[in-house]
Amino acid sequence: MEILVASAIGLMTATGLFLILQGRSFPVIVGLTFLSYAVNAFLFAMGRLTVDLPPIITPGAAYTDPLPQALVLTAIVISFGMTALIVVLGLRGFLETGSDRTDLSLADAAEEHVPAPEGEDAGRERGGAARA
């Protein structure tokens, strides 16, 4: 069983790493989610794997290590907070600039999703893109 868990952790890590190396914010966010899974599972695995020994005190029972579980529990919730914040940051960046690239040197060549906006706010848009 250990080999399955270890390989799963490795694969989730690899997927996460590959996705954060992409040049767009959404894959990076998905990649961070994968990395959170991998890191949480890794931390959890540090307590070694046991079956049917939950850390609930019952007379005469053996237990698994509760400490990694407690740490991972907070980590899961915190990683939600982090993901939510990054999602919103990415969204705000896209709304401001019209591009969701994570590469500033290419951001000037943005706006490929939507035809360039015309009219009164075209200048403001370009200003926003330059600011990014």
Binding site: A6, G10, T15, F18, A45, M46, R48
Partner: peptide, 22 residues
């Protein structure tokens, strides 16, 4: 290249987890 980097990283983490769990 990115795939290779990610793969090596994953291999390392997976191997480390395996080494600890065993």
């Amino acid at each position: 290249r990115d795939g290779a980097l990610a793969g090596i990283g994953g291999l390392g983490i997976g191997g480390l987890a395996y080494a600890v769990m065993t």
